[in-house]
Structure formats: C-alpha cells, structure tokens
Simulated scan of single mutants.
Amino acid sequence: MLSLLIPWSLHKTKWSGLKQNTVVGPAQPVVAAVGQDIVLPCHLEPAANASEMTVEWTRPDLEPRFVYVWRDGVELESKKHPVYEGRTSVFSDELKHGNISLKLSRVRISDEGRYRCFIPDVGDSSVQLIPGAVSSPFIVRIERSSSGHVVLQCESTGWYPEPEVFWLDGEGNLLSAGPTETVRGPDDLYTVSSRVTVEKRHSNSFTCRVQQNHTNQTRETLIHVSGLDCSYYKLEANCRHFDRIRLSCFELIRS
C-alpha cells in the first residue's frame, strides 16, 4: 500500500511546485510598426528554468494555431503555422531565467491578433498585438469656393489602423470639417482625405492633423494662408513633392 502512495506523493509535490509559478504577460497591448521586429513579453514569476519545459505560443484564430513551440530543449519548427516560418523565436539563453518572450520579425498587418503564451501544468497569459503604419499628411488642393471662402484639402496615405483627421486653427481650436473620406487599399493600408472651409474670421494658419489613438501616433502639416480675401477665384497645388510652396495668395509649409 505504501509503495502505491509514494509515487502519487512525489507527483503531487512536483505539480505543486510548478503551480507556484505564474505565466505573466503585459497588461497593455503591444504596438508594433509594420516591417519592424517586436518582442511579445512573457515570463515566469517567480523566475524559474523554463529551458526543459514545453513553451507554446499560439494564435487561437489560426489553424494550425501554433506560432512557436519549444519542447525537450529544441524548437518544433514543423508545428508552426506557415505564415510564421522564419519569423518567430525565443531567447534560448534566457529560458533558464524564466524569460519565455516571443520575438516576431518583420511584422505584418496580418499579424494583428491575440497571442497566447502557455506552459502546460503552469499556466498561460495573453497579449494583444496591434501593427501600426503611419504617413505624413500633405495638402493636395487649395481652392476658392463659389461663396468666396477658401477650401483646403489634406490627404495622408499608408496608415494602419484607420486614423482620424482633424483641422485646427492657429490657436489650436478644432475646425468644423466635412466628413473624412477613407479608402483601404489592397495592401490593407488606409488613405484618408479631408476638406475644410476657412473664412476671414479664422486665423491665417491651419493644421491638418492625422492621428491613430490605438497606436498613439500623430502626424500633421501646417499651411499659412497669407490672403483670405484674395480676389483669385481658384488656386490649386499638389504639394506632395514640395517642402515649401508660395502662391499668389498662399504660403504652404510642410511639417
């Protein structure tokens, strides 16, 4: 009878020892620039040697779901989803210190999602990855409306996730603008365009600001209108390739 109890006692002690450790991930989403390398943090707390444990990184929305698998001291490349081949790894020298973070190379927009860091008999933790892409806005059109007001159009290409566009006057006050036009390209990046009508009661300086709150990214460009009461009916300029352009009634400054 005693011989039957001893193995159970040993197994329970080992299992309880493992359960004292906790798999810990970040409390906030991880934001990564498209094309760059990123680390999804995950570690054992308190620190313990994970080099002989099984470490699994998965994305539940994929099939197969495995992003990276470490077992018996080696990586199981055959388990990995094809889109992550050659792009995921762990810090093998740091496993003995309980660092089971995942390095993801050349981040893609399609990498967006929730990742699960898991060690059997110990626990798991999840981390949300948000890829981001940004681009500076530029003024694509300056014209005078039939009512005599000046109309400015701002555009920015190559954003992810979808950003917002705001217009501000020289004092930093928000201006009422028309609805933002948004186009998502075949590369999944967004192009946004916005128009605003300015009047003599406004200051002569205006800012087009494009921002993405999830990735905490903001880009803006400044335009100085030197003559709101100019008699010209219509003025146009494509300013994509100019740092500074001077027209009869307008002076444009790219940020």
Rank of each mutant, 00 (worst) to 15 (best):
Q36G: 07
P29R: 01
L40G: 07
S51P: 07
N49P: 01
S78Q: 13
I38L: 01
E52A: 06
V83L: 11
G86E: 11
S101Y: 06
Q28W: 13
V107F: 03
K80R: 15
K96G: 03
F66E: 11
D72H: 07
E52P: 06
A47Q: 01
K103E: 12
T58D: 05
K79R: 14
H81G: 09
G98V: 03
S101E: 09
H97I: 08
V31I: 14
N99P: 06
Q28K: 14
H81A: 10
F91L: 05
A48S: 00
L102G: 03
P60K: 15
T54P: 00
E52L: 09
S92G: 05
F66C: 11
K80M: 15
R87H: 12
P29A: 08
D93C: 04
A33S: 15
V83K: 15
R108M: 03
M53Y: 09
P82A: 15
R71P: 01
R108C: 02
R106W: 12
S78A: 15
P82S: 13
L102D: 08
P64N: 11
H81I: 14
A47D: 02
R65Y: 12
D37N: 15
Y68N: 08
P29M: 06
K103G: 03
D93P: 03
D72G: 02
G73I: 09
P46S: 00
P60Y: 12
E77L: 14
C42P: 04
S78E: 13
Q36N: 06
I38W: 02
V39R: 08
R59P: 04
L102A: 05
V39N: 05
V107D: 01
E85N: 14
N99T: 10
K79F: 15
A47Y: 00
G98C: 02
D61E: 14
V55T: 02
S78I: 14
V39G: 04
D61R: 07
T88Q: 05
K103L: 10
T88M: 10
C42Q: 05
V55Q: 03
H43E: 05
C42H: 03
L102M: 01
V107E: 12
E45G: 00
K96R: 06
V34C: 08
E56I: 15
M53H: 08
Q36D: 13
K96A: 13
E52C: 09
V67N: 08
A32D: 09
H97W: 12
V107Y: 08
T88Y: 03
L76A: 01
M53S: 11
V55S: 01
G35V: 07
L95K: 04
G73H: 08
R59G: 03
R106Q: 15
D61M: 13
Q28V: 15
E52F: 12
F91N: 13
K103Y: 08
E56S: 08
L102V: 02
R71E: 10
V34L: 04
P60Q: 14
V69T: 04
S89W: 04
E77T: 14
P64M: 09
V67T: 07
W70Y: 12
D93A: 08
S89V: 07
I38T: 10
A48E: 04
E56L: 15
E52I: 05
L102F: 06
